[in-house]
């Protein structure tokens, strides 16, 4: 602790704490600046056309419907692939393998994968799926999103399952239920809101993912519902349009970015509301 006189120490304290307040203002100002730009530029390009027409050629008018459709298809497929695997893996970590050495290792590796660069996942799926299929495809895009979903779901689902008191499992076991029945009929329902929050957060995470889609789903200028062919998707369209010199493409890129951000922010807020309204299992039971 400094030995200077009290006045000096108080001044230093006031300055430092003032600076911390300024840092907070700075952080909030950046968030506000990003959202403000996004709204003012995104709303300018927003019209009914965006939801009814496919992506245009440079200079002509059009919308984003094929990209919006592609994004919805691939994120839902990705969620369908990743979430069940993630929840099953979390079930092992929290129920069957609790306290085992293997679980500690898996938990650690999962935490590392959680922050691993998503572009590397894209390269992985490229060598695994795209090369063996011979071409880019929506299904490859969905698989790479699914791989990103797994660690997110494992982490949140395990946390939520662990919050369920073991007395509930014991009560179920005392009635003669096998562990799997206790898990599916007692533990999962009790952790329902927590599991849902985890899935929503995973959905938010992959909705804006661009890097892993660049060389798996690629892009498609046209309307396509064929999963084994390249498919348009919002993030890649935004990337391509924003870096182009065409004004109408840039404007659509902002609109697309606004749509994604609104969707992702809404998901995050809903996820928060669910976990605060319904508790996280713990508070509801006790």
């Amino acid at each position: 602790m400094s030995t200077g006189n009290l006045r000096k120490r108080r001044i230093i304290a006031a300055l430092a704490l003032g600076a911390s307040g300024l840092a907070t203002l700075l952080g909030l100002a950046v968030l506000a600046a990003i959202l403000w730009t996004l709204f003012s530029r995104g709303v300018a390009g927003l019209s009914l056309q965006v939801f009814t027409q496919t992506t245009p050629a440079p200079g002509s008018s059009g919308g984003l419907i094929n990209a919006i459709f592609g994004s919805i298809v691939m994120t839902l497929l990705g969620l369908g692939i990743g979430a069940p695997i993630g929840i099953m893996a979390a079930t092992y970590l929290s129920e069957y393998g609790r306290g085992e050495q293997l679980s500690t290792v898996i938990r650690f590796i999962n935490d590392v994968l959680l922050s691993a660069p998503s572009i590397v996942i894209g390269l992985f799926v490229y060598t695994l799926v795209v090369l063996s299929m011979g071409h880019f495809s929506a299904i490859a895009g969905a698989i790479s999103l699914g791989i990103i979903v797994i660690p997110v779901t494992v982490r949140t689902a395990e946390d939520m399952l662990r919050l369920i008191p073991s007395s509930m499992r014991q009560a179920s076991a005392a009635l003669g239920a096998q562990p799997w029945r206790s898990i599916t009929r007692v533990v999962y329902p009790a952790a329902r809101s927590g599991l849902l929050t985890g899935i929503l957060l995973a959905l938010a995470r992959i909705s804006g993912e661009t890097a892993p889609l660049l060389f798996t789903a690629l892009n498609n200028q046209f309307w396509s519902t064929n999963l084994s062919q390249p498919m348009a998707n919002l993030p890649v369209v935004i990337f391509q349009f924003a870096t182009s010199p065409y004004k109408n493409w840039q404007s659509l890129a902002w609109t697309g970015a606004l749509l994604i951000t609104l969707f992702v922010l809404a998901l995050s807020i809903i996820a928060r509301l669910i976990s605060s309204l319904f508790g996280t299992g713990e508070s509801r039971i006790e």
């Binding site: 990003i34 804006g208 993912e209 661009t210 990337f239 890129a253 951000t261 998901l267 995050s268």
Partner: peptide, 12 residues
């Protein structure tokens, strides 16, 4: 919420 904003938005 700043953490939830997709990285492509920061890019553009």
């Amino acid at each position: 919420l700043l953490a939830a904003v997709p990285s492509i938005v920061f890019g553009i």
